[in-house]
């Protein structure tokens, strides 16, 4: 399996974020996207995930079983956690597990992996920012998807939670998955390649 970005361009609000960007990530590899604010890291991840159509170029996944569209093969974990504060921790996890095709036992294991088992019956609104972030991260383990798109995943996580995240991502890579992470801080991932985005200076009129 390979994730291919083929001559991708992105334009937002009349501004070219990146142009003719190409990359290929093989199974078991992580692509770390770096660059200053406004260089288009988030837009790149949203483009890969199919949320933002590219101005030019295409994203595809090669040598994979099934013919699901790229967006259905990606987990997107962005700045917002997709957590409902009125639902309990377990209800949140169980909803995404059911929605993404996993079972309840999967929700329990994911909560375990991110150290949230003790809080399972607490409404998520009571959780701290870091705990809510961890609850959001459990979604990565709730449905089987080969490509993980992580946008600043370590933001507001403490050391223990970061370690749990790295364990989860490295496990995913060892199982032959792919991860694309946009980050400012070094991540302790195996088998990484780096894609550095510059701030484009041209303007699209």
């Amino acid at each position: 399996m390979r994730l291919i970005g083929d001559k991708l361009s992105s334009v937002r609000g009349g501004r070219v974020l990146f142009a003719e960007l190409s990359f290929a990530v093989a199974a078991g590899e992580a692509l770390v996207v770096t660059g200053p604010n406004g260089s288009g890291k988030t837009s790149l991840l949203r483009t890969i995930g199919g949320l933002l159509p590219p101005a030019a170029g295409e994203v595809r996944i090669e040598d994979t079983a099934g013919d699901a569209p790229v967006r259905e093969q990606c987990h997107y974990f962005g700045h917002r956690n997709a957590v409902k504060s009125a639902l309990t921790v377990l209800e949140n996890a169980a909803f995404w597990a059911g929605y993404l095709g996993g079972g309840r036992d999967r929700a329990e294991r994911a909560l375990d992996a991110f150290g949230l088992s003790g809080l399972r019956d607490i409404p998520a609104g009571y959780l701290s920012a870091g705990q809510q972030r961890r609850l959001g991260l459990t979604r990565l383990l709730l449905g089987e998807r080969p490509v993980w798109l992580l946008d600043e995943p370590t933001a507001s996580l403490d050391d223990a939670a970061q370690a749990a995240l790295m364990t989860a991502v490295n496990g995913h890579l060892q199982r032959g998955g792919i991860a694309v992470a946009a980050t400012h801080v070094p991540l302790s991932l195996q088998n990484t390649r780096t894609l550095s985005l510059q701030r484009a200076s041209a303007s699209a009129a």
Partner: peptide, 17 residues
């Protein structure tokens, strides 16, 4: 509105539904 604000809509837009 709630689903847009907390990022749920992004996830819903990526399937499987």
């Amino acid at each position: 509105e709630g689903d847009l604000e907390d990022g749920t809509l992004d996830v819903l837009a990526m399937g499987p539904l």
